[in-house]
Write a protein that binds this DNA or RNA. Structure first.
Lengths: 243, 243
DNA sequence: AAGTGGTCTAGACCACATA
DNA sequence: ATGTGGTCTAGACCACTTG
C-alpha cells in the first residue's frame, strides 16, 4: 500500500488524483494502458472505494482518463476533435470527418522568431526546426501551415524520410522523438490574406482568412510545437452553446 | 414525501434531477431562490443523501444550479460571460468587462424572414418584432445588431418607453414579458462587410466582419429571441484549450 | 450554536464486457 | 463465471456561513 503524499490539508481524493496524474506524466502509465480497478486503487492507496472513484471521475473530467463500463479505466489517447479546425466546412465531407492530404513544402533548421522562441521556451541562440506545409482535399489547397519545433527535443524529426511522414504529425513526434502531445491551446483571429497566402490557397488577395495559432504541450506542459494555420474564412463556421 | 416519477429503469439520481429541473422550468423555483438542503431533498424524495447529492451535482454541471458551501443550493441566474462577444478586444477595457452603450435605431412590428420564423417557431402569418441596434464604446460604434422577437410572447416589449430600455435587453424581457432567457446557441462566421454595415461601423466596404447569430431560449427551450450581430474582425480574438 | 454543503467510509447490489 | 465500472445506502465527521 502506497502512502498518499502532498499537502495533508488537501482532500484525499485530490491527493490521490495528483498521484495518479504523476503516473501518466512520468510515463509509467502510457496512453491506452489500463489502470488497476477502483477497488485495487482504493486498497493500494488506503482509501475507501468511493474516494478512489471520486479521484478517477475527476481525472476523466480533466480529459486524462477514459472509463468503459465493464472493461476498465484507461489512459486516454488525446485526440484533437475539439480543434477549431473541425469548424472548417470542408473538414467533414458527407458527415464523416476526413484527414486531408498534406504536402511538406519546407523542412529546415532555423532560428525562430522571438514570439515563437518565447512560446517554445527556446533559450537565446537555441535552435528550432521550421516547416511549411500545405493541406489539400481532393487536390485543392485548403489550409497553409507554418510549424516550429524546439530543436533539443525534436532533433530526430529532421532525419525522418518525407515518405514516412503521413498527414498526422503527432504520432511521428511520439514514435521518433518520444514526445507525446497531451493538449494544446488554440487562438483564432481573422486577417485579410497577404499575396503569398492568397497564392498558396488560390484566393484573391485581401480575401478574409482565419488564422489559428496552436501551442501543443506534453503531459508535463513542456511546449512541443508551435503552429500557425491559415484557411479561407468563407468556409469557417463555429457553433457553441452558452448559459 | 414525493414519489419519483418517470421511467423506473433510469437511475434514481437522474429521475430526481429531472424532477428538480421541472421545479425550475415551471417557475416554482426562480433564479436566485434557495433550494431545500440535501438532507431535506433526500427525505422528500425518499433517497439517500448521497443520491440526492449526485442529482444536485449533475444540475450544477448543467448550469441550472449553483452551490455555496455553508449557504445553500440556488437556482443560477444565467449570465452570458461565455458569449462569443467576450472575444472582441474592446469588450474588456483595462481588464474590466464593460457593457457598451446601446442605441436603438428601429423597433417595429414586421413579418420575419423565413429562416428567422423557423428558428423562432413562428407559424405562417405569425407576427414578430424587429429591432435594429447599434452598440458603442466611447461613442464609437463597435457592433451592429438585428433582432427579432416572437410577437405572441413578447408583444408588451413594443410598449416599453425607449428611455426604460438599458443596454441589456434580457432583464427587460423578464420583467415586462415574464420570459426568462436561460440559455442560447451562438454560431460564428466571417464575411466581407456590405456597404450598409461598413457605413454603420465606420469601416471601409469589404473589410472582414465577424457575424454572430444567437438564438436565445427559455428554461423549457422556447425560442425567445433571434439576433445577428456584426463587428469588425480585426478586433476579434478567440482562445481555447483542447485535449 | 445551528444549518449548510464537502469529504469519507464500508460496504451492497446491478449492468456490462469478456473469456 | 469473473471482473469491471455504475448506482445506492446510511450514516459520520469536517469546513464554512450566518444569526
Amino acid at each position: 500500500m502506497s502512502a498518499l503524499s502532498g499537502d495533508t490539508r488537501l482532500p484525499r481524493y485530490q491527493r490521490l488524483a495528483e498521484a495518479l496524474r504523476q503516473e501518466v506524466v512520468e510515463r509509467r502509465w502510457k496512453p491506452g494502458d489500463r489502470l488497476p480497478s477502483e477497488n485495487d486503487i482504493a486498497a493500494l492507496y488506503g482509501v475507501a472505494t468511493g474516494t478512489a472513484r471520486q479521484a478517477l471521475v475527476q481525472l476523466v473530467k480533466e480529459g486524462l482518463l477514459k472509463r468503459e463500463h465493464g472493461r476498465g479505466t484507461f489512459v486516454r489517447r488525446p485526440n484533437f476533435d475539439q480543434s477549431l479546425f473541425r469548424f472548417f466546412r470542408f473538414w467533414a465531407k458527407d458527415g464523416v470527418r476526413s484527414v486531408p492530404e498534406s504536402r511538406i513544402l519546407r523542412r529546415v533548421m532555423a532560428a525562430p522568431p522571438g514570439h515563437v522562441a518565447r512560446s517554445l521556451r527556446i533559450e537565446d541562440g537555441g535552435g528550432a526546426i521550421n516547416m511549411s506545409r500545405l493541406r489539400l482535399i481532393d487536390g485543392e489547397p485548403v489550409v497553409a501551415e507554418e510549424i516550429w519545433l524546439p530543436l533539443d527535443l525534436m532533433e530526430k524529426f529532421l532525419d525522418v524520410a518525407e515518405a514516412d511522414i503521413g498527414p498526422l504529425l503527432y504520432p511521428v513526434y511520439d514514435e521518433v522523438c518520444g514526445q507525446t502531445v497531451a493538449r494544446a491551446e488554440e487562438s483564432l483571429t481573422v486577417e485579410s490574406s497577404a499575396p503569398e497566402t492568397a497564392r498558396l490557397l488560390r484566393l484573391e488577395a485581401g480575401a478574409p482568412i482565419i488564422v489559428i495559432d496552436r501551442l501543443a504541450r506534453g503531459y508535463d506542459d513542456t511546449p512541443l510545437e508551435w503552429r500557425r494555420s491559415r484557411g479561407a474564412a468563407d468556409r469557417f463556421h463555429y457553433h457553441t452553446e452558452i448559459r
